[in-house]
Amino acid sequence: MPIIQVEMLKGRTLEQKRALAEKVTQAVVETANCPKEAVKIIIREMEFENYSQGGVLKCDEK
């Protein structure tokens, strides 16, 4: 049973998350040769103040 974790910044719509789940599931089915019902996906959304790149919080970027 493949378990995929996706971490991303908040802001995606429900429709975008549905499409992501569908396409990631299909990719795993094709490459891991497993039924789609076996694929589990966890989507974790981060607040902009909880993500930093290059020493700068995303919420502080201009």
Rank of each mutant, 00 (worst) to 15 (best):
S52R: 09
I42F: 13
I43E: 05
A27D: 06
V29F: 03
A27Q: 11
N33A: 09
R44C: 08
K23P: 11
F48G: 04
E37N: 09
A32Q: 07
I43Q: 03
C34Y: 00
Y51Q: 01
Q26C: 04
M46S: 11
S52W: 00
E37K: 09
V29W: 00
E49N: 14
S52I: 05
K23F: 05
A32S: 10
V29Q: 02
V29H: 00
V24T: 05
Y51M: 12
E45Q: 04
E30Y: 03
E49K: 13
A32L: 13
K23W: 05
K23G: 09
I43N: 07
E45V: 02
N33C: 08
Q26T: 06
P35D: 08
K58D: 02
I43V: 15
V39W: 01
K58S: 07
V28F: 12
A38D: 00
A38M: 11
K58G: 06
Y51L: 13
E61I: 13
V28A: 02
F48T: 10
I41D: 01
Q26D: 15
L57Y: 11
A32R: 03
V29Y: 00
F48C: 09
V29E: 00
N50W: 03
Q26V: 08
E30H: 02
G54S: 13
A38R: 06
A27S: 13
I41N: 02
N50R: 13
A38S: 13
M46N: 11
K36A: 14
Q26Y: 06
E37G: 15
E49F: 14
Y51K: 14
E47P: 05
I43S: 02
Q26E: 15
S52Y: 07
V24H: 03
A27F: 07
T31S: 09
I43F: 09
K36C: 12
T31R: 10
F48I: 10
K62E: 10
V24N: 07
G55W: 03
V24P: 13
E47I: 07
R44F: 04
V29M: 12
G55N: 03
G55Q: 07
E30W: 05
E49Y: 08
N50T: 12
E49Q: 12
V56I: 15
L57W: 13
N33D: 11
V28Q: 00
V24Y: 07
G54Q: 06
K58E: 08
K58Q: 12
E45H: 06
I41V: 10
E30M: 00
C34N: 04
G55S: 14
I41S: 03
F48K: 15
S52P: 10
C34R: 01
M46T: 12
V28H: 00
C59Q: 12
A38H: 06
V24S: 05
V56H: 08
K40A: 14
K62H: 06
D60V: 11
M46A: 06
R44Y: 02
A32N: 03
K23R: 10
K23A: 04
A38C: 04
V28R: 00
V28P: 03
E37V: 07
C34M: 11
E61L: 12
F48R: 13
V24E: 11
I42K: 04
K36F: 09
E45N: 04
C59P: 02
K40S: 15
V39L: 05
C59T: 13
K62F: 05
N33S: 14
K36H: 14
